[in-house]
Design a protein around this nucleic acid. Structure first.
Length: 307
DNA sequence: AAGACGAAAGTGGTTGA
DNA sequence: TCAACAACTTTCGTCTT
């Protein structure tokens, strides 16, 4: 048995942190996120909030939403029943059956296509299986309620994925979804809001801290910088600097400051690009952070160190 | 010359009358 | 239903390194 010790491909460190919930492996030494090496060990039918009171006990084969008919199907009228009916009644029954058939095949066809698209986008974004399942579930519900009418299938898929990400606290930005799905940001946001409202899904505002690991990794920042950024975020939340603001803006500003403090300077543009916000937003948040928390001292310290 | 800074005008969404 | 509004973006000119 050769014990395979996983090493970080970036720095060779073996101090890896597995965050199963988010499907991420994070290197504690350099902060790299290795998402794709991860198998999701969690059950795919977690309960997402307390209001969803149904206990979903599993019996038999797992029911999966990534398969278009969930392994189940209905048909109106068994043949043997039909012979019990007479004339008009019987015709009515045939008509019903025809309609049922048409509707269900239409839905099924739609679902088949949509779920293929969903899988494509999901794997492009390297989302954990649990999120994919959730998105499929949301989409299925949306189709059954006829919410797709008047909207493109792709945009509803993107919206469902976005919602699922949020619910699992693995937020992706609208920009990322947009890139992966080829749908406009506006459109995704619109359908996302529409679908969640119509289905009565409760979605918590996303936590800026959830973005830190991914952004930091994309910017190749150290683990210390990352944890400093989270520390800053916590302080900012205490004095309610974070409420009402876009979480990505705050996350990126915190990251920017902590990079400065640790002498790993990144330009505002670089940070802005990975976070999908503009430099201006970073500047505004950054200024607020400096004003409200006393970070100037720490900044000066590193400045002196440099010379 | 590149990056940081800030003002001004525009966009899309929320809220409250 | 509409107007006021807050957050964020775009654009652009100026200052700093």
């Amino acid at each position: 048995m050769s014990e395979m010790v996983k090493k970080c491909p970036e720095c060779g460190g073996i101090n890896l942190f597995w965050n199963r919930e988010k499907g991420e492996i994070i290197c504690r030494d350099c902060g790299l996120v290795l998402e794709d090496k991860m198998i999701d060990f969690t059950q795919e039918w977690r309960e997402f909030d307390s209001s969803e009171g149904e206990t979903r006990r599993r019996t038999g084969a797992p029911m999966t939403f990534t398969q278009y008919d969930q392994g189940l199907g209905t048909e109106v009228g068994q043949k043997s029943d039909l012979f019990k009916l007479e004339g008009g009644e019987r015709n009515k029954f045939f008509r019903l059956r025809k309609w049922q058939y048409r509707i269900s095949t239409a839905i099924e066809r739609n679902l088949k296509l949509a779920l293929a698209e969903l899988k494509r986008v999901s794997s492009f974004l390297k989302l954990p299986k649990s999120v994919e399942e959730e998105a499929a579930r949301i989409y299925t519900l949306a189709v059954q309620r006829g919410l797709v009418r008047g909207r493109s299938m792709e945009s509803v898929v993107a919206g469902a994925l976005y919602a699922a990400c949020r619910r699992h606290e693995v937020p992706r930005t609208l920009d990322e979804l947009s890139e992966a799905s080829g749908i406009e940001k506006k459109e995704i946001g619109r359908t996302y809001r529409f679908v969640t409202r119509e289905l009565g899904l409760t979605i918590l505002p996303s936590n800026p801290a959830d973005y830190i690991a991914r952004f930091a990794s994309a910017l190749k920042l150290s683990a210390e910088t990352q944890s400093k950024a989270i520390e800053i975020l916590e302080q900012a939340q205490k004095i309610e600097l974070t409420s009402g603001r876009g979480p990505t803006g705050i996350a990126s500003a915190a990251l920017y400051v902590s990079a400065l403090i640790h002498g790993e300077k990144r330009t505002q543009r670089e940070v802005a690009d990975v976070a999908g916000v503009t430099e201006v937003t970073i500047r505004n948040r950054y200024k607020e952070l400096l004003d409200e928390l006393k970070l100037e001292r720490e900044l000066k310290k590193t400045k002196k160190k440099k010379r």
